[in-house]
Design a binder for these strands. Structure first.
Length: 492
RNA sequence: GCCCUUGUAGCUCAACUGGCAGAGCAGCGGACUCUUAAUCCGAAGGUUGAAGGUUCGAUUCCUUCCGGGGGCACCA
């Protein structure tokens, strides 16, 4: 399995001999184009009612990978697979001629071929193409995965996704679904008057989340940049600028461990809407996701229909552990309450972290159906606005923030955005103190962002949706690696 | 980082308690004009992830390392 020194393989040598033989016969093994190709599904679609054994005069040109071959005499059946499906070709030596027939039989599985023929259905009922002529479109020099069992080895599927895609129809279907999810999201947001923006991936200062960043270096400027961990702060500057409704859909990067729910680069959607708050974000979120689910024909155990369940964070913890975290509003009190109920007390250093622990251990795994958890502690939320409470100032140290959960994991995070520059500055000061105390994920102080807020940002609702996780939920996958074409792996 | 588990032919998988590493598909040679996991005949294909160790003998037992999966930790 070394990349450099290739083990000598008779299988590869055989394919190379065929390649040279073709060239010697004057056949170009890598032609430039093949015009007028129709997809297999388009060719098949009008002939669904064709009777067994019936011929048509409908000509069609298809192209794809040679996936199987049956019959080697004076006729042969070969299967061509394209993105849309599989179609059988029937080749007869008395139709296509001796030379073309022999050459067809000498093809290797995996070769790319183009075919012209007429549509017919075999006596056994297979809608096929009566081959008139064919062309080699690209020679394949390596053996494809097993034609029947496909490729099942997970490591091979992740490292060589091209093999997974060519061998496993479900893999192709999954990534087509992924594309449809993303296209639908864009369309829905565009329809609602959101403008798509692109903020820097290389940032002088990272921000918008609690995470460790990747650091890189720009040679000409002789300075370091961070790969963004979120787009939040830039999009809010767009809001200050008056764009009113903006979104960005792109990659974020976090320098953390890998897991079934975490990849170091992942796709995030964030949008911001002027004159809206977190309740409006929840309504838009559940509407968008349920529309996407129906658009892709989701048919699984999760009910995405609106409205989704809503609980408060504190209420959700109390329901599952019998602990009211708001009645034990400091570290020692909460620890005591946990001990009293014989819960394991981890080594967390702050009340907020302990709340976060209770959430992820006792609540999150139970949230299979879509659920919003509302109203988070301010300590966990440096960019969210204080809770309006009941108008009597009794906000309990909470902010207007929710996270959406589904399939036992977080898929979205939203707030009524903090737009008071002085309070934002104070929050940054707290983060600075946390960093000084050793918190590696503390948020860095961002003066440019504060300066923008001082220009005045409208009341704004904002949200981030983890697209990879959303696709996991929509496709029923347990690992984020299954929904990423090329997941991060160790060096082989 | 820790724990469990896993790695055999190009692919999919066997190999009992330690006893000659095997099959299907693919590939190679041949037969076959409606097959579809085509069929039939023949020949071939291996440093069992790597390196050590125990043993008369290791795919099998032990150690270390590398890769994958799961869990914990870390982390949204």
């Amino acid at each position: 399995m070394s990349a450099g020194e290739e083990a000598p393989s008779e299988l590869i040598a055989s394919r190379r001999r065929k390649l040279e033989a073709l060239r010697a016969e004057g056949v170009e093994p890598f032609p430039h184009a093949f015009e007028g190709v129709k997809s297999v599904s388009v060719v098949k679609e009008p002939h669904a009612e064709l009777a067994d054994g019936e011929e048509t005069t409908v000509g069609a040109r298809i192209a794809g990978r040679l996936a199987a071959r049956r019959g080697q005499g004076k006729n042969a059946f070969v299967d061509i697979v394209d993105r849309s499906g599989r179609m059988q070709l029937h080749a007869r030596v008395d139709v296509i001629g001796e030379e073309s027939f022999e050459r067809l039989l000498s093809l290797d599985l995996g070769d790319l071929v183009g075919a012209d023929g007429t549509v017919f259905r075999t006596r056994r009922g297979e809608l096929s193409l009566r081959l008139q002529s064919w062309t080699l479109l690209a020679k394949s020099l390596r053996p494809p995965p097993d034609k029947h069992h496909g490729l099942t080895d997970l490591e091979a599927r992740y490292r060589h996704r091209e093999l997974d895609l060519m061998a496993n129809e479900e893999t192709r279907a999954l990534f087509l679904t992924r594309a449809k999810v993303i296209a639908t999201i864009r369309r829905k947001l565009d329809e609602r008057g959101f403008v798509e923006v692109e903020s820097p991936v290389l940032q002088p200062l990272y921000g918008g989340g609690a995470a460790r960043p990747f650091v890189t270096h720009h040679n000409a400027l002789n300075r370091d940049f961070y790969l963004r961990i979120a787009v939040e702060l830039y999009l809010k500057r767009c809001m200050v600028g008056g764009l009113e409704r903006v979104y960005e859909l792109g990659k974020n990067f976090r320098n953390e461990g890998l897991s079934t729910k975490h990849n170091p680069e992942f796709t995030m959607l964030e949008w911001y809407e002027a004159y809206a708050d977190y309740s409006d974000m929840a309504a838009r979120c559940e509407e968008l996701v349920s529309q996407v689910a129906s658009e892709i024909g989701y048919d699984g155990p999760i009910d995405f229909s609106t409205p989704w369940a809503r609980e408060t964070l504190a209420g959700s913890i109390q329901a599952r552990t019998d602990i009211d975290v708001l009645a034990h509003r400091d570290l020692d009190a909460l620890r005591a309450a946990m001990r009293e109920r014989e819960l394991e007390v981890p080594d967390e250093q702050t009340w907020a972290q302990l709340v976060d622990h209770l959430l992820s251990k006792y609540v999150e795994p139970t949230l299979q159906q879509p659920t919003f958890l509302m109203d988070y502690p301010v300590e966990l939320s440096p960019f969210a606005k204080r809770h309006r409470g009941d108008g009597d100032g009794s906000d309990n140290g909470l902010v207007e923030r929710f996270e959406a959960f589904c399939g036992g994991m977080e898929i979205a995070n939203a707030f009524s955005e903090l737009n008071d520059p002085d309070e934002q500055r104070a929050r940054f000061e707290q983060q600075r103190a946390a960093a000084a105390a050793g918190d590696a994920e503390a948020h860095p102080y961002d003066e440019a962002f504060l300066r923008a807020l001082e220009q005045g940002m409208p009341p704004t609702g904002g949200i981030g949706i983890g697209i990879d996780r959303l696709i996991m939920v929509l496709t029923g996958r347990q690992s984020i690696r299954d929904v990423l074409l090329f997941p991060a792996l160790r060096q082989p």
